Amino acid sequence: MKKKMFFTALLAGLNCVSISAQVGSVGINTASPGSSLTVNGSFAATYRVVTASGTIGANDYYIAYNGTINGTLTLPAAINGTGNFAGRTYHFKNTGGATLTISANGTELIDDQNGAGTGVPSITVPSGYYAFLVNKGAVTGTTWELVLVSSSNSMPSVNQTYLFSSAQQNAFKQTCTATTGPTWQKTEIKYNQGMDINTGNVLDLSSGRFKAPADGYYMIYGSAQFDNSEISGQPGFAWCVLYLVKNFATTPNNQLVQNLHTNPGIFAPGIVSAVVHLNKDETVSMASAAQLNGGGPQYQVTSTSIYGYKIAN
């Protein structure tokens, strides 16, 4: 033991490094460490680049995923008793163009502070994003804690916000069923003239529904012109309403916001917008309803547009 201590001291001296201990604390290049370990100088840990799925080891610290296809990196399994690595940290950066998934081991979970009180088996790190995790020391349940997920860019890319945008011109008019009884008849607005932007095909042109590709908060904006100029007799509107509706297919009365006009004549504009939290695969549609003076069965909308994007997880 004495020989080992002598060799360590000799090595430190040869490298002009001062190692001092004070009341259980260790200082490097300082004689008065203020913490259990104080380093008066630079610090280095393992930097590893990976391009495919794999497991994270005890010697890993910072991992850059530079894969061209989606990949999964699996965290090490918890250890009970001797060898428990509570407080171990890992840093991940997705430097490639695909999606990185960080997965807990087996049935273990990652505490992502989602408000539900339960963890998740994995998290995703989009291209350009960074994730920081720390081990909680537990051996079951949420064994890891997600400290931070952030982007290295001030503005995320289109792929990370799922931007979509579409607009119909005046030449296209959608014919809708008018309300003739006590129950308002809602019609989803479609965009037959296609998309200017449709990242990941998040907007279904055949139904007019935006489908959330991931949990998060989304900004949705829509507009339309109620226009009966080509309906026989040009009937005036008794009232007309433009909506944003959540999950129209299953709950068509779940409107998020509406814009109402009463007795506007044969024309009326509508503008709607909302910030809404959506779970993965939930939808938002722009829809309309109208009743005509004289109780006609049909009306038309034109110049419709919709756009949106994800604003937060």
Score class of each variant (00 low, 15 high):
100 L>Q: 03
286 M>V: 11
210 F>Y: 15
114 N>K: 04
53 S>H: 06
84 N>W: 04
62 Y>N: 12
66 N>W: 01
209 R>K: 14
298 Q>D: 11
196 D>W: 05
121 P>I: 04
138 A>E: 06
88 R>M: 07
294 G>T: 01
140 T>C: 08
61 Y>I: 00
39 V>P: 08
276 V>N: 07
155 M>D: 14
272 V>T: 06
259 N>P: 07
286 M>S: 09
290 A>C: 12
91 H>P: 02
64 A>T: 04
307 Y>H: 08
256 L>M: 11
176 C>I: 01
106 G>E: 09
166 S>L: 05
63 I>R: 00
205 L>N: 10
79 I>Q: 09
65 Y>C: 14
231 I>V: 14
186 K>S: 10
27 G>L: 05
239 W>E: 03
137 G>Q: 03
69 I>R: 01
237 F>K: 01
63 I>C: 07
30 T>H: 06
36 S>C: 10
229 S>T: 13
68 T>L: 14
288 S>Q: 03
266 I>G: 02
61 Y>E: 03
227 D>A: 03
1 M>D: 09
52 A>P: 10
118 T>L: 11
78 A>H: 05
120 V>W: 04
64 A>G: 02
31 A>E: 13
243 Y>D: 10
287 A>M: 02
266 I>E: 00
159 N>I: 03
209 R>A: 15
145 E>Q: 15
169 Q>P: 06
266 I>V: 14
93 K>R: 12
1 M>Q: 04
88 R>C: 02
216 G>W: 04
41 G>I: 04
10 L>W: 10
94 N>V: 10
200 G>S: 10
45 A>G: 06
7 F>I: 13
233 G>A: 10
210 F>M: 09
283 T>E: 13
222 G>A: 09
24 G>M: 09
22 Q>Y: 10
228 N>D: 07
174 Q>H: 02
191 Y>N: 03
42 S>V: 08
1 M>I: 10
235 P>T: 02
104 A>S: 12
156 P>D: 13
83 G>M: 01
185 Q>F: 04
32 S>M: 09
21 A>S: 15
247 N>Y: 08
6 F>A: 15
161 T>A: 12
40 N>H: 10
